[in-house]
Amino acid sequence: MSDKANVQKVVPYAESKLSKKEQIAAMFNDIAFRYDFLNHFMSMGIDVLWRKKALRQLKTLQPKQMLDVATGTGDFAIMANRLLQPDHITGIDISEGMLRFGQEKITKLGLENKITLQAGDSETITFPDRTFDAITVAFGVRNFENLEKGLSEMCRVLKPGGKLVILEFSNPTVFPIKQLYNLYFRYITPLLGKWIAKSQAAYSYLPDSVKAFPQGQVMCNILTNTGFQSVTCKTLTFGICSIYCATR
């Protein structure tokens, strides 16, 4: 089975008749109220360092207009605003529940004029060609129903010379990190999800989706085939996470 087929086959609710996209939206609506807490708790806060390292890839570019795809509750967009100080960031997501929590944070921080969150699908981005200087995606591309279509859309709305930065989980290969990682992700993560977010299905989906997602050179090849150039992959924390960078 191809990587594309594997990614599309992995869904949160195996018995559901809904499409993967619809299931993802429903899943994130269900866990939105605990999403930020669980991210930081389960990664012991290291996810914050991963995000900072990813955003540093855009420092020299100094983007003015940014798009944050699968923005969720806006954490990455808020951090990008602080570290990069662009003119404006637009965040899109298919989960209304996540966006609602994100908007509350943005309003509380007084960032309404700097960050706009709106419902949006990565596979049909409702912006003209060559709109953005930079596009970011943190822990979202493995949830795309059609990975190539989503990447092609991001390439379309990126300005020539603009940069895409993707932060995504990956599978470590070094002993004993690989074994510990698999143990934690396979058995402990679903229990924490059930206990804290009341959703074991969502946090059982997490390790399955990471395992099925194309990684390393395979992902780099997909980015190249969807129109990107100068594609690189940098692994973090023994390969638990990866930063993919690409330009148009």
Rank of each mutant, 00 (worst) to 15 (best):
V231E: 00
N39G: 12
Y13W: 06
V7I: 15
G162Q: 02
A54S: 15
L18S: 12
S170H: 06
A138C: 12
G239Q: 09
F37A: 07
Y187V: 02
L84V: 08
I240F: 13
P176C: 05
Y184W: 04
L167N: 02
N81A: 09
L84F: 10
I24T: 02
L83M: 14
G91Y: 08
G193P: 12
D93F: 06
I24V: 13
D36E: 15
A119N: 07
L117D: 03
L191V: 11
I78C: 06
W50G: 08
F101V: 11
V10A: 01
F185K: 03
F175R: 00
V48G: 11
P190L: 13
D93S: 07
L192T: 08
V11P: 11
N39M: 00
T73M: 14
E123T: 14
M219T: 02
K211D: 12
R248C: 03
A197C: 10
G120D: 01
E104K: 15
L206C: 01
F213W: 00
A70L: 07
G72Y: 13
S152L: 03
A138Y: 10
E148K: 08
K163S: 09
S230V: 01
F144D: 02
Q62M: 15
S43R: 00
L180R: 08
A26L: 10
E148P: 00
F144S: 06
P12D: 07
A134D: 09
A5M: 10
T107A: 13
Y184A: 00
A119Y: 14
I222R: 09
K198L: 10
W195R: 07
V157P: 00
A14H: 13
K53E: 12
Y181A: 01
L111P: 01
G97C: 05
D208L: 15
T189V: 15
P172F: 12
K198D: 14
V231F: 11
G227H: 04
I177V: 14
P12C: 12
L180N: 13
G91V: 06
K20G: 01
D87G: 07
L49F: 15
S2Y: 03
A246S: 13
R51K: 14
C233E: 11
S152E: 12
T73A: 09
L67M: 04
S95Q: 01
L206T: 03
F37G: 04
K163E: 04
Y244S: 05
H88W: 06
N81E: 15
Y205M: 02
T131K: 04
L236E: 05
Q229C: 06
M79Y: 09
S209Q: 04
S122K: 04
F169C: 08
V69R: 05
F28A: 02
F185L: 15
D93P: 13
K9N: 12
I196M: 08
S230W: 06
E112V: 09
D121L: 02
A54C: 13
T126W: 03
F228L: 01
M154H: 07
T71E: 05
N113V: 09
N81P: 04
I106M: 14
L147F: 05
E22M: 08
M44C: 09
I115Y: 13
F144L: 11
A70Q: 05
S122E: 12
A32H: 12
Q217E: 15
F101D: 11
D75E: 14
K4S: 12
A26C: 03
K9M: 07
T60N: 15
K20R: 04
M42I: 14
Q215K: 07
G97L: 05
K163P: 07
C245F: 12
